[in-house]
Nucleic acid binder design. Structure first.
Lengths: 203, 203
DNA sequence: CTCTTTATGGTACCGCCGTACCATCATGAT
DNA sequence: ATCATGATGGTACGGCGGTACCATAAAGAG
């Protein structure tokens, strides 16, 4: 047997190269040759590890959501142990906002995928397209817990608030991307909306 | 002089063909040949009236926002004369939602343009990219009027509510497009948010 | 020490798509 | 009637980009 390479690791490297170039020039402008150059490998290698461009894109989306989860976890750790529901929700929402380079790439590329999925059958049927639904479940759970702990204002509908917060965050993210709004003002809008739900601000 | 043709009308026809095909297969999949076939003209004619594809896309966006304005106006007329601020706001927001074919096309194509504008210099510098800012101004105005007429709850910040409503509507629209949410539930979310601002529902 | 298997490079092919070029027809002004 | 001009058709060209094909180096198993 010849030299063995960790395929998972190599695929991850190439996927990150894809995300970098897609974050810069847009997903529609991400050619396989660009990805190869960005990853510092030959075009042939990208084919070797992903066969077709479609599979590369699919894995890229998978990788994107995965790294998003890691970034949320990191922010939660930074928020100290045992954070309250509002702090957790803030972490999730602000992480998906284009406040830094990683957030910018995430929002741009994820939205590009979503728009593609509207007209692309193969993309729409992928499981990770449903991550927003998972996020909504999670937010609803957190809001339910908050309500049970009497942390919310009376008359709060957890599921409705969850969908509101997620749609609002998505919309704010895009308006930041197109340069219409500053990240700070977007965060302020989010805080205001959270103030409508929670009795007090997060510690 | 030979046969004279109304260029504006012909350009409008071709632009609508562009929007139809973009609404079906996605803006990224709208080839000039497709647009020509959809409009029932030859590829050469599309070139004749638009020269380059970039100009066709630019005019397509212009046409899209124009038709959106007409649809808002139509809904306002249908709402009777002298509608209140809340009714006007509802008309604007629900018109931009993908509740019917026209709304679906509008949201899909407009979002595609917005995402493209993030990485495309020429598109970003176009004036109609700023239509969301104009919409925000208009909503802010309406909310100011409503506040002056004591139609809103105390402590309402018109500008902040305007940005919230617009971002929320955009996010809801995309979630409808990807099949995550029904138009009805999205409208319900919007109504709930408007209930937070206005003292009573629209007539 | 070979030989099979894996990893990698280079490159050619082919289709697609925007654009350019060359024609022709129709029409109204002179 | 003629001719200049606008409208329209057909088609070829050229580049780009995904995919396929053909090599070869390397390294562990026998």
């Amino acid at each position: 047997m010849p030299k063995r390479v960790d395929h998972a690791e190599r695929r991850a490297e190439i996927a990150e190269a894809l995300l970098r170039v897609a974050g810069r020039r847009g997903l529609h402008a991400a050619r396989m040759r660009d990805v190869a150059a960005e990853a510092g490998v030959s075009l042939r290698l990208v084919q070797y590890y992903f066969d077709t461009k479609e599979k590369l894109l699919l894995y890229g989306l998978e990788h994107l959501t995965e790294r998003f989860g890691e970034r949320v976890a990191a922010r939660l750790r930074a928020a100290g142990d045992n954070p309250g529901p509002r702090a957790v929700i803030e972490a999730i929402l602000t992480t998906s906002l284009p406040t830094d380079e990683a957030g910018r790439t995430f929002h741009l590329v994820y939205t590009s995928y979503a728009i593609l999925a509207v007209t692309d059958e193969a993309l729409a049927s992928q499981p990770f397209i449903r991550s927003p639904e998972a996020a909504e479940e999670q937010l609803t759970d957190l809001l339910n817990k908050a309500r049970d702990a009497n942390l919310t204002h009376p008359g709060t509908d957890p599921r409705l608030e969850a969908t509101t917060l997620l749609a609002l965050t998505a919309g704010l993210g895009t308006s930041i991307l197109v340069g219409q709004r500053s990240p700070e003002s977007a965060v302020a809008v989010l805080e205001r909306q959270l103030d409508r739900i929670f009795r007090e601000r997060a510690s």
